[in-house]
Design a protein around this nucleic acid. Structure first.
Lengths: 335, 335
DNA sequence: TTGTAGGCGTTATCAT
DNA sequence: ATGATAACGCCTACAA
């Protein structure tokens, strides 16, 4: 068991003065005499006094903590994001409570409940891939815990969110492909039910249209984002009589798998086959044969903006009108 | 400002019973009648009552939070580690406060202070590369905040730590090199002042000895772990008249840089030059030409063990004798 | 079975 | 310039 730390009362007792005087002295209240103040401060030192913030938090109804919920820190996107969130939080004297959902909706809810119990002053969240039930949003609104979504955001209105517009990057990707003569451009998309997949699918069609390339259903395949799924999707494309010469895929992880598979099948990148995907993970720069490009989604900017929105909410007296901030995504060509 | 949430008192008032009865009913105290219990619970529901944990924490002198301090989540080693820490914490109904030091000793101290203010029940920490001043350890001991170090641990006695023995992996690495005929085996080490570097250097010498290879000073170079530093170190080795045919390097990041550089110089891996490094990052499996091997340091095992040690401390009444747990590192050959 | 009272550490309010 | 008191929300020994 823990020996209890020194309290204001103890200091007061030892000095035979009142607790309020001690409190004031410690906070440099002007009405306290210099001598008393010094005496108090010395005694505080001596007893290794440290204010019990939990008591203060309790009284102030503020914990100076925010909760961050995201799918997985092992994705570079999210580890970048949380770094930036921590920076912003630090600037505001806030600390970050962490929770990884691992794309499990149940776990998300559990984390939210834990955060509520801990009375976080606000929540930043990137949704898991399978989260359907958004009723927790109302629940949080009810108890006035501000929440800001980023990256993987719900499609509903009336919530604060920061995300990236996937279509700008897709347009650049398709255009880059078209400009070097590709006609058969495929899309390896994520699970169909995902909003992120739907957006990519739409953006893909739009971009093809813009380049006067006819949309052909057979060039769109889906993966469940497992390694097996990625390879299976690629296999489907390669078996087509008129196989694609260029591929946009859901994200860099997918591309990693399919590049490897293509290599095994004897295809040489940027000769037989061209790749672009979303995320722009830093590892590409080390690859001997990186894909043609990757679409940057700016995790740090998104995260910073989302955190700033959250702190604006936390700081304000009345509730603010929900805001949706969109960052353009941008193709980065490799080599 | 936040509307204050329902409290036990409110429920009591509405039901015209005492707060203690409400408290007991909510906690299913056996002495409370079934009807009362139901009435209370219903009212609690209706008012969206949720116990104010901050009040409870305050009273219990326990926050059910642990603080985790590590250099950077963008290193896969640490993101694996924190995932596992979060798992263990979850099992204990604990939540994780996060702080990245970015290898800045000042920032470490600041985080520690924040954690103390938040009255975390314990701290898990992996030291930054430049941390020299360990006086915070005594400070924490003073205030009885248990701390367990992992991975990058202080060399002092009397602290709980979990780390990996780098020498076992080094031995395997050198042995693997020697077994396929390498004699000129170099070491690209980290900054000389680092404990982690010294250990590698020692292990390197020992391992050479064991293989009956003479130690030659010129084959040991240092890098500050920046890209430029890594390349510079490699350059030095390549300029040697009798350049090494095999290289052990500080970690996979270093190897990534030097592989790239070697490639630019026209060297073909596993023909002209062979690499092994520490960390065993997952990305190797995607590389067209991965290094010969990488030494696994088991971030998840280390993290789990460290977390378990911390919770043992937190749970126990008297203070326990500090323990040092060492995991062997293990070479993983690629392809 | 239920109520009363006190306390956890701090601070704000009101008094002296 | 300082002290006394109450209050934040919850729990629990003790009383009824």
């Amino acid at each position: 068991m823990k020996k209890k730390p020194a309290t204001i009362k103890e200091i007061a007792r030892k000095l035979k003065i009142s607790a309020s005087t001690v409190s004031r002295a410690l906070n440099d209240h002007p009405s306290i005499g210099l001598v008393t103040t010094m005496r108090v401060k010395n005694m505080a030192q001596e007893l290794h006094y440290e204010p019990n913030q939990t008591a203060i938090f309790f009284k102030q109804r503020r914990t100076f903590t925010i909760g961050v919920i995201l799918p997985s820190l092992s994705e570079p996107f999210f580890s970048s994001a949380i770094s930036e969130i921590e920076n912003v939080a630090g600037e505001q004297n806030y600390t970050v409570l962490m929770g990884q959902s691992h794309d499990d909706a149940e776990r998300e809810l559990q984390i939210i409940h834990t955060f509520k119990k801990h009375r976080v002053d606000g929540i930043l969240m990137s949704l898991g891939k399978n989260t359907e039930d958004l009723s927790f949003v109302d629940m949080l609104k009810e108890s006035e815990v501000p929440i800001v979504f980023f990256d993987c955001v719900p499609k509903i209105e009336g919530v604060n969110k920061v995300y990236s517009d996937l279509s700008s990057g897709m347009r650049e990707a398709i255009q880059s492909f078209a400009s070097i003569g590709h006609k058969n451009i495929a899309l390896i998309n994520g699970p169909e039910n995902l909003l992120a997949s739907q957006e990519r699918a739409d953006a893909y069609k739009q971009a093809l249209l813009k380049e006067d390339i006819a949309f052909d259903e057979k060039y769109v395949v889906n993966t469940d984002l497992t390694e097996a799924g990625n390879i299976e999707a690629m296999e489907k494309l390669l078996l087509l009589s008129d196989r694609p010469s260029a591929i946009v895929s859901f994200n860099d992880f997918v591309t990693l798998d399919v590049i490897k598979y293509a290599r095994q099948k004897g295809l040489v990148q940027k000769r037989d086959i061209f790749f672009i995907s979303y995320a722009n993970y830093p590892l590409w720069k080390y690859m001997e044969n990186p894909p043609m490009g990757s679409i940057e989604q700016y995790p740090d900017r998104q995260a910073r903006r989302a955190a700033e929105m959250l702190f604006a909410q936390i700081g304000s007296t009345e509730d603010m009108k929900p805001e949706a901030v969109v960052f353009e995504s941008k193709l980065e060509l490799k080599n």
